[in-house]
Design a protein around this nucleic acid. Sequence first.
RNA 1: CGGGCUGUAGUAUACCGGUAGUACAUACGAUUCGGGUUCGUAUAGACCGGGUUCGAUUCCCGGCAGCCCGACCA
Length: 434
Amino acid sequence: MLIVSYGVLGYDDRMLQSQLFTKPRKEAPKDEVAKNAALLVRAGFIDKLQAGVYSYLPLGLLVIKKIEQIIREEINAVGGQELLMPALHPKEVWQTTGRWDSLDVLYKIKDASDREFALGPTHEEIVVPLVKQFVSSYKDLPFSVYQFQNKFRMELRAKSGILRGREFLMKDLYSFHRDEEDLKQFYEKMKGVYVRIFERCGIGAETHLTFASGGSFSQYSHEYQTVTPAGEDIIYVCGDCGVAINDEIIAKQSACPACGSTKRKSERSIEVGNIFELKTKFSDPFGLTYKDEKGDDKPVVMGCYGIGLGRVMGAVVEVFGTENAMRWPDSLSPHRLHLLELTGKGSAVDSVRKVAGDIYQKLTKAGVSVLYDDRNARAGEKFADADLIGIPHRVVVSEKLVADNKLEYLNRVTGEKKIISEIEFFRLFTNDMV
RNA sequence: CGGGCUGUAGUAUACCGGUAGUACAUACGAUUCGGGUUCGUAUAGACCGGGUUCGAUUCCCGGCAGCCCGACCA
């Protein structure tokens, strides 16, 4: 394959569908009941290895990478520094915080010499000793670090497809501050970051800032809950300001904590992200302190901020998917455009292939990521598979269209379908990027 | 972890205490070619272990796995 240019992700993300090693299926495996998993498995985005443990296949990985890149851009914009910490954790750090015994979702493993480890469910125990080596003065604060990493949680019951896994990809960010005031400021800034992230992922309208339990040392934590019937949580969305309250604290909090309104509606929802004031909960056991202007030792104040990438992907499918079709927002679609050639029969085959192949080359040169259905398959199958895969823009090349020098363009978001010239089409995709 | 249900070709399903059938997928041939065309041929299957029985994929017990409900879930 001639490599002409690279897609936005920095590698060649265009694809000939005939080369794709996965294939769409007509039926979902009987052990996938959740809509997100049924559609994603059928379309070849993911594969289940065991309950709550999935592989991301080429199409699905492209979506995950796009979610990741959106998060990365928004966090970098507020100064977050990306790193990558290990998943294999020594027992000792978990004993330091007492969570070796108290955290029941912790996977514990032993090596051949009986040494014990944990598989990381979250990384406070790792990041705090790490930053301790570099933080000594108030001048070193504040800062924040984050990573994208697989987390391991021994859920008693994995369920809902990729919405509750035992191994799952998460963005976790930790912020470090000299006092609660500074933490508060950053925390508020992160709320804006999260709003932009979910907005860019296409679920901004369905995703609500939600007040949730803050545990023993904080009045609230905040979750980002995406409304969909597939959700496991129940939230009460304020009719005036759209901020929600998690069912778990509704008894203590009847009026909207944001605007005081008592108008509200209960909804099922998926927690796609959360932010939490850790304060000194983890700085204390590890002795993470800094010297203030007077030379006094003070504990570092922390916050943590998570987003489940698989959950975002699953939530998007739940929100936009129908029985036989997904529909990706432009920002997350594995490819920008789905190009279908309907070769028909006889002498037209070559001309259709030539036109479609040409368009593919031109778009690729222009940096547009295309999934090109060059398979030797019938129209019905191609249309059905394209619906299932759910790339929001579809363009068809067929014998009839080639004869008229036209293309058929479908926008799955607006439902608009039109016959256009090649020039109009290229203008659509190489200038006026949606 | 408690309760319920289920394990049959790659996928979805059927029947049966006595040679396991169908559809889709796959391979080959023909036909068709803008919404999963039609036909033929071929390939391919009973989760594992134990028990009952002349004989178990079927019945019983145990294990393992999966799904659903609940509990759990920074």
